[in-house]
Design a protein around this nucleic acid. Structure first.
Lengths: 329, 329
DNA sequence: CTGAAAGCGCTTACAG
DNA sequence: CTGAAAGCGCTTACAG
């Protein structure tokens, strides 16, 4: 049950080098020999051990995805794209989940130092300029998704523009008191989207009003949850002067907001952010992020870099798209 | 940038064995020595390489999750539970995604033979009795989630009972023509749920009618999608005699079904299956599967087995719970 | 096309 | 508490 390359070599009457060659698709093996080796291997159920191969070859054929939260719609979609691409290429996928509470950079550095993979896909990992620079020194293929740093290939969506577009679409409909249902204030997407929101207001000459920003304290998924949206909307509907309309920082929060409005019996137009598959089915207007495409493309970009460290760094920035549905009618 | 245990040993003035001991938490190292080693390691940014450790120790501290589809609500929730548990334990998580089209058993066998991990969590992997038996021979810790085979620890939910409960709840309300919005007929959960559905009918003396089973052909996520539900419900609403009520095979399909009813302008009570987080927010009655708990508990069970191969095999079967909300009012 | 041999970077008895 | 040395299961020049 635990045969090694030596067992196969002995049984097939060849050297271990030859067995190794057979399993490495080397073409310098005669068909006869190859067949003999394969037959024996098949019979005893032999496969090269991943760790031994990794150590000896200093390669691993593994791509590692590094993310803060796995159970999250955005990540799930991006990952779908990653898989689609990987399936074509024959790499193995590994996922490393960094925990929010601890020293983020330390965790990221750790996983790289351990050399688990040949290439890394960082999804929604936000570091400081200084820290990216340090990572750069490891000289390992890394592609960033949902983040931007000029030293690495990256694939992202313009959050500022997306929030701007969402807010503007509401303002253009004539609403003045447009609220923003945010999540954890310190999170990167919220910070960016707040900028876009303010920009749209400024353009219309509407003064920014702090009280129209409803943010949550929950650390769980940074507040991008149904519950977060529900609670935020409840607060909003209890304000002395209820907003005219609302820009929600994510579709999943909008789902909660919709319920809150129903429960309270008051209604206002809302627009979400992401365009998860579900949104079409609940008639939610939103800002589409091409999540699947991002995963797909980022993976391609990473693999290209793994094959050629010298290629020029590419920054891909998708423009978010306004999707109009019934929630803003 | 690529220091090994030798570099650290030399710089710290000790042997490589000592360096190794420091990184393996062995307590037979003096505090002075330990500090010296740690200081040097910190300075040069050293971490043991995963592959070399794995090969030398024949252990890997890695748990691998094997699944058919990653971007799927059920899996996402289960994985959330897995992570919660793993975080407490300090194992690394790897995910292996088997593709639907190919020879499933071959893929599963391959990943085990490569010895990527010390323990495996199989989620929604359905094999034949015969194949499970073969896997058993590898003598590797495996825990099954959403599947049952007496040779391995398993954590599952009684699908037959769940479907029975759902269908019965509709029949008890007085509906006679209760349809089932299924997905890919050949999928395991559908087969089981169909049994439960029939059982409930039989109990009430209602003859089973093939035309009330609406199944899809889509391979994508086995048809457990919003679109699948939407299309199924459209079909149903176009039948000459529209059913009185409908049991949907998953919440996500129910979301699609809800939209279909709205679009067509006809309505019938429906009940879903899963109780994904979302369902509470759209008022969907459903059958709750404790997905997070299943992941959590399965991980615990797996780790216990990894630590003690001799422990008795445990089969945990959760009873699904009926959650009553407005969609069946 | 094939083999002998060194080496990948660790761990772990075995001695002391 | 510490070190010398063998071994984990492969890959890969180097020779032939």
């Amino acid at each position: 049950m635990a045969s090694t390359i030596y067992d196969i070599a002995k049984q097939a009457g060849v050297s271990i080098a030859t067995v190794s060659r057979v399993f490495n698709q080397s073409n310098s093996v005669s068909d006869r020999t190859r067949k003999k080796v394969l037959d024996v291997a098949e019979a005893v159920g032999y496969h090269p051990q991943a760790y031994a191969q990794g150590l000896a070859s200093k390669k691993s054929n593994t791509i590692m995805v590094v993310v803060p939260v796995i159970s999250n719609y955005f990540f799930m979609e991006v990952l779908g794209g990653v898989q689609d691409k990987l399936q074509q290429l024959g790499y193995e996928l590994s996922i490393f989940n960094v925990t929010a509470d601890d020293n983020l950079f330390g965790q990221v550095e750790h996983v790289i130092k351990r050399r688990w993979a040949q290439g890394y896909l960082f999804i929604s990992i936000h570091l400081k300029e200084e820290q990216w620079k340090q990572l750069k020194r490891y000289d390992v293929p890394i592609t960033l998704v949902d983040e931007h740093y000029e030293g690495f290939d990256s694939v992202s969506v313009d959050n500022i523009q997306g929030a701007y577009t969402a807010t503007k679409s509401l303002l253009d409909k004539g609403f003045r008191r447009v609220a923003m249902l945010a999540a954890l204030k310190s999170s990167k997407p919220i910070r960016d989207r707040l900028i876009g929101y303010k920009k749209a207001l400024a353009e219309k000459g509407i003064p920014f009003c702090e009280s129209l920003i409803i943010s949550g304290e929950s650390q769980y998924r940074d507040g991008f949850t149904e519950r977060g949206g529900y609670e935020g909307m409840i607060k909003m509907l209890n304000m002395e002067e209820i907003p005219d309309a609302c820009f929600c920082a994510s579709d999943i929060q909008a789902v909660g907001a919709l319920k809150a409005m129903k429960d309270i019996g008051k209604h206002m137009p809302i627009i979400g952010y992401d365009d998860i598959e579900l949104s079409e089915y609940i008639g939610l207007s939103t800002i589409r992020q091409p999540m699947r495409d991002m995963g797909f493309y980022a993976t391609q970009s990473l693999v290209e870099r793994m094959r050629n460290q010298e290629k020029a760094i590419s920054q891909t920035i998708y423009s978010p798209e306004l999707i109009h549905r019934s929630s803003t009618d």
